[in-house]
Design a protein around this nucleic acid. Structure first.
Length: 416
DNA sequence: ATAGGGTTAG
């Protein structure tokens, strides 16, 4: 197991006020800590929420405790209540405060080996996106000896992926002596997110053939994303068969994933087959994403009239289009060079209050330029409250391609 | 307790 530098707060733990000094500091470390003084004892700053914690956990209200120490029982109570609090904070998405609380526990020398929420605490480190901190917590739990638990290792694995520390994550996965479905899913989706699509597919296959573990819907979904990204119809079809055999082919996410995979691979017929064979299921029918992948898939494959038909069918059953639907339909108008339909869709966007969406605005602006109404396109740009780099890029390239390259240069200068 | 998701503007 790769252990990096010890935790910043690890030395705090052993330095002192504490009850448990079974890991005495080497002199140099102690000196380092003394030199650091109080300037950097914590990973994160105090927040207002921390004061809530202060009132809940009494040892912070009662600093005299430091001088005399706590009984074994009451320090266990502190660990328990702090653990509860850490769990709540992480569930609220407030990982930084959760970490602060843990650091405080170390500072006060509480017996953290009794702490029961390491997976939760470790997960909070994912939000820091800091490989250094991830390695610190890794070293910390390793020294505490709690890293035998598959939950803890899985959480750490997830943190490494979140930090983009691919090497650390892969190495850790390979050295795991016990892996469960979550371990496999974490590494498969991690590889997929890092752009190693074939690697994630190989891992999927290794999971089945070398380890006799059957992938669940989570793994299948990641693998489908990989197939779409590398446009591998061979792997995609194989995966489709697997999904059917496992009888998870009615899962909404897998249905949209399958349709999207076929569309991205250019296999419109199989996308249609999946769509038509499931769309009458009540649960699938009401899910706009299924319709969106069909519409955008048709547009991407140039099947424009089919896209319109599916869009109208979607409206006819009373589903309301969202940003993705409208973007796909507006792109469709540009491709058909159908200004009248484009204007109609523009009005429609006002009706469903999507006219202030950056992506819809960009699509509309681009559509007006492509269909020859650059005045309307410019107006959208000028009125927009959501101008971003994509929108700027779109208007500049449209002007550059039009008869007004000078206008493109003017706009370009305005950026800087 | 840990992993995990589909569409989406130049």
């Amino acid at each position: 197991m790769a252990v990096a530098r010890p935790l910043d707060f690890y030395s705090v733990h052993t330095y002192g006020h504490g009850l448990h000094q079974h890991n005495p500091l080497r002199p140099s470390e102690a000196l380092q800590y003394k030199l650091r003084g109080a300037s950097k004892p914590c990973l994160v700053s105090f927040s207002s929420k921390f004061h809530t914690f202060c009132s809940k956990v009494q040892f912070l209200q009662n600093p005299s405790i430091l001088g005399r120490g706590l009984s074994r029982d009451s320090s266990l109570d502190e660990v328990l209540s702090a653990g509860q609090l850490i769990k709540e904070y992480v569930e609220d998405g407030n990982g930084e405060d959760a970490i602060t609380i843990y650091v405080k526990m170390l500072e006060f020398g509480l017996p953290v080996e009794e702490f029961r929420f390491f997976p939760c605490l470790i997960k909070a480190f994912g939000g820091l996106s800091d490989v250094g901190k991830a390695r610190e917590v890794h070293g910390h739990v390793l020294k505490l000896g709690v890293l035998d638990d598959v939950y803890d290792v899985n959480s750490l694995l997830g943190v490494y992926w979140k930090c983009g520390a691919i090497e650390d994550a892969v190495q850790m996965f390979e050295k795991m002596c016990k892996r469960d479905l979550v371990s496999w899913n974490t590494v498969i989706s991690g590889l997929c997110h890092s752009g190693d699509y074939m690697g994630s597919l190989r891992m999927f296959s290794r999971m089945i053939h070398d380890h006799w573990v059957l992938p669940n819907r989570v793994a299948c979904l990641s693998a489908l994303t990989s197939c779409s990204s590398v446009q591998s119809l061979v792997h995609g079809r194989e995966l489709h068969g697997f999904v059917v055999k496992r009888e998870i082919d009615t899962d909404q996410f897998l249905v949209s994933g399958l349709i999207d995979m076929y569309m991205k691979c250019g296999d419109v017929k199989n996308a249609e087959y999946v769509f038509r064979s499931i769309i009458n299921e009540e649960s699938i029918r009401g899910n706009p994403v299924i319709w969106n992948v069909m519409i955008s898939g048709y547009v991407a494959n140039g099947c424009l009239s089919h896209a319109v038909e599916v869009f109208l069918e979607m409206l006819s059953i009373g589903l309301s289009p969202d940003t993705s639907t409208m973007v796909a339909v507006i792109v469709l108008c540009s491709q058909m060079l159908d200004l009248a339909f484009g204007r109609q869709m523009h009005k429609f966007c006002f009706g469903i209050q999507l006219n202030n969406d950056a992506r819809v605005e960009t699509a509309l602006m681009d559509m007006y330029f492509k269909c020859g109404d650059s005045k309307a396109g410019l107006e959208i740009f000028q009125r927009s409250l959501n101008r971003n780099m994509v929108m700027w890029g779109a208007i500049i390239s449209n002007f550059a391609q039009s008869s007004r390259p000078d206008e493109a240069l003017n706009l370009f200068h305005n950026i800087y």
